[in-house]
């Protein structure tokens, strides 16, 4: 912990998270604009205009809503993303350089369970309720593969500290020999950030789910928070699988930034390509196909770890 970055770095990290989230959101809407035959430029700036639109809206609430739980949940999405990013080393050190950084990231992604369910519950609307419960059903499917995927880099590096894990990968990134874990991890990131294709909790097919009753700044916090979570999850993939800040010419933080943008961009592209994965389809797949595959991946990694030690 003595090696954590000074607290002044909080400002650039938060600004960076905001800028990357806006860019990723811009990429997503630019692609949509292209599909609709509109100018790509108008899509790129859409997140900013949407922010302005929502900041102008009059706040709205539903009758007999559990406002404490609902407001807490919508307020918690962005802080969750910030905390995840805090554990990601930007080069040699992170804002919070903890020996158990990996377990912390796991613990934080689990908080998304509480947040998303409460978003659906607090609102007192059938739509929200169905959305929140669908999120949980999906979470039951992706969480264990995600946990075992997180374990793979830990076994390979013999450490739970993200800075150490990223430093162990000189020359050979973990993604090269733990591809299954990497994919399962990304799958989980899409899951806890409720982004397509892992967004049945907020899908059109349940009338908008947990997002249906959100307007004004509440909606802004959740929509922005979903992108921030996606970016935060992608940022955590960099020290885990993609060699951290390693790369020529640029300083460590520059490479972390570039890799984060690439991973989150790829996840957005995957989300546009794939249809929404409904929990009734996915739950069993997660347990009987993905989970054994990731466990097998861990087995391979630990055999290699033992052999090379």
């Amino acid at each position: 912990m003595a090696d954590s970055l000074p607290l002044v770095y909080v400002v650039p990290v938060m600004v960076g998270l905001a800028v990357v989230s806006l860019s990723v959101a811009g990429l997503s809407s630019a692609l949509e604009a292209r599909d609709r035959g509109l100018s790509v430029g108008s899509g790129l700036t859409l997140p900013l205009r949407e922010t302005a639109r929502l900041m102008r809206q009059r706040p709205r609430r539903t009758v007999s809503a559990d406002r404490l739980l609902w407001r807490s949940a919508s307020s918690a999405v962005i802080p969750l993303a910030v905390l995840i990013v805090a554990f990601v080393p930007l080069g040699a050190h992170a804002l919070v350089d903890h020996p158990l950084g990996l377990v912390w990231i796991n613990a934080l992604d689990v908080v998304a369970w509480a947040v998303m369910w409460l978003l659906g519950w607090g609102v007192n609307s059938v739509t929200g309720l169905v959305g929140g419960y669908r999120f949980l059903a999906l979470a039951l499917g992706y969480e264990l593969p995600l946990m075992f995927a997180l374990t793979a880099p830990a076994i390979a590096a013999g450490s739970l500290n993200l800075a150490e894990i990223s430093a162990t990968q000189d020359g050979l990134w973990f993604v090269v020999w733990t591809p299954v874990a990497f994919v399962a991890y990304c799958w989980g990131v899409l899951g806890f950030s409720v982004r397509p294709p892992m967004d049945p909790g907020a899908g059109s097919d349940v009338n908008g789910g947990i997002l249906a009753e959100l307007a004004a700044v509440d909606r802004l916090l959740v929509l922005a928070g979903r992108y921030a979570l996606l970016v935060a999850g992608s940022a955590a993939a960099v020290p885990l699988f993609l060699g951290g800040g390693a790369g020529p010419l640029l300083p460590g933080w520059g490479w972390v930034l570039i890799k984060t943008i690439l991973v989150s961009g790829l996840l957005v592209l995957a989300g546009r390509r794939l249809p929404t994965l409904r929990p009734d389809k996915l739950l069993e797949l997660g347990w009987v196909v993905v989970l054994p595959l990731v466990v097998a991946q861990d087995l391979v990694v630990s055999v290699i770890a033992v052999a090379t030690n």
Binding site: S29, E32, A33, R36, L38, S39, S42, G43, L46, R53, R60, T127, S204, N207, G208, L211, A212, E213, L214, A215, R219
Partner: peptide
């Protein structure tokens, strides 16, 4: 960016 369909009244302007 053109018009798009709102999924619920909360999300609608028009």
């Amino acid at each position: 960016m053109g018009w798009c369909i709102a999924e619920s009244a909360a999300d609608a302007d028009v």
